[in-house]
Structure formats: structure tokens, C-alpha cells
Amino acid sequence: MDRDLTPAPDTGTSYAEAAPADEGKYVYCIIKTPEEREFGPIGIGEDGNVVYTVRFQDLAAVVSDTPIRIYDPTRENVLAHELVNEIVMREFTVIPMSFGTIFRTKEDIVELLKSTYRAFDDVLEKMRDKIEFGLKVLWDREQVIALLEAQDEEIRRLKEEITNNAQSSTYFARMQLGRLIESALEGCANDYVVDIHESLKPVAVASRSNKPIGDRMIMNAAYLVERSREHDFDEAVKALSRKYENLLSFKYTGPWPPYNFVNIKLRLERADA
């Protein structure tokens, strides 16, 4: 896979002039492997370049050759990035790279692996045989309100009062009812999330909650699970979805590379050349 790279262009030129002709390497993830590997012609970009390893000792970056260019996060591109991770993940524990990272040469990647060897090795060890699952929980607000009305005496009483005195001073009663329902909903969402989380905790290694997106979502979490406990985790999620049938809907995805559990930010410095 090695090839002679053209000499670095004059640094005084603009990016637009410098970029197109250069070859680089798109990096998908870091794995541990004692030998070179190939994963087939599944690389990012139109050409379907071969995905292979660049190694330093037993660490390897999973890469494919690419012109040095900006990959927009289009559907094709992000799915290509994800697909490579998924395929590699079938056999290896991976530390995923964020989208769009291109190194200029093989030597630069080796340098990166060398400089961060202990850190990557440590992270890979901690992530060994673990996979990530995504769980988003959405609720049906109307159903929950109906349930609250059935359960909460105060809400029921106020509601009756409002219905019975349609013409008289129901303004404050309505205000009060609105507030009551809002705070009951909040408490309710919190109870659901706590219950779901407590049910999944015993079958997961770690969890992370992200900000829910939109009005209907009450939980947006990622769980790190031992491969050997994948089935248990599945069962636990299914049990929850049955328990909360009609009230909550679960969007359950995976297995993912452990994106939510690996947060590695690297700063690159210039060599004193």
C-alpha cells in the first residue's frame, strides 16, 4: 500500500491549490491487532478504496487511501464511516475516530500511534469486548396526562370544579390546573427515566445521558454493555417497553462503536523541524 508521495507543496500556496492532487489516509478507528489486516473495498469516497491497517507494534489505525479533501457529512459519507467501524467491530474492539479525519502520510499515523500508545492501549483494554447501545425514550403526553388525571386526586378535583362552574371564577382554577399538570408531568418523566435507568444499570457497564431532542423525548441515553451480556440487555429493554406500553415508545439501536464512552481530544503540535 505504500507509495511515494509527491513532495509537500510550498506552504505558501492556498489550500485550494495545494489539496486536490495529494493523497492522504482517512482514519476510521484504532484497534489492536498483531498482524496486518484488510477489510475489503468499503472505503469512504466514490472509488470504494480498500480498507486496511497501518500499524505500530500491536496497535493499528484502520484506514483507506483518499485524496486530501473535505468530506462533507453527507448520508453516503457518514454511513461509509460508520459501516467500516461496524465491520471492523465484528472482530475487534474499536476506538472510533470522529468523522472526517485525514492524515497526510502513513508515517504521521505511525507517529500518532507511537505518541499515544499507552493511552490508546489503556482505552482499548477498558473497552475490550464492550459495545454501545442507544436508547431514546419518547412519551405520549396526552396518555400520560390522562393517567395523571386518573391517579391524582387534586388534579381530578380541580378538573371537576372547572367543568361544574363553567361560567364562574374558573380562571384561577384553570391556571392552577395547568401548573399542577406541568409539574406532575415533570415528576412523571423523572420517575420514568429513573426507573428505566435503574432497570438497565445492572446489565450495563456504564451509561451516559445526552440531552433529549424535541418535546416528546424524555430520555436520550447510551449504554456500554459487555458483549456477553448483550442478550440480557436486550431482554431488559424489552421488559421495559412492555411495562410502559401505550405510555412510552423506545427507540433502541446498536451495537455501536463506543462513541459515547470514548472522549479523546488530541492536540497536534508542530515538530521542531
Partner: peptide, 8 residues
């Protein structure tokens, strides 16, 4: 996941 998580 891929835009800002993992190795950045």
C-alpha cells in the same frame, strides 16, 4: 455520534 465523539 460520528461528528464530535470518539477520537477528535
Amino acid at each position: 455520534r460520528v461528528l464530535d465523539k470518539g477520537i477528535v
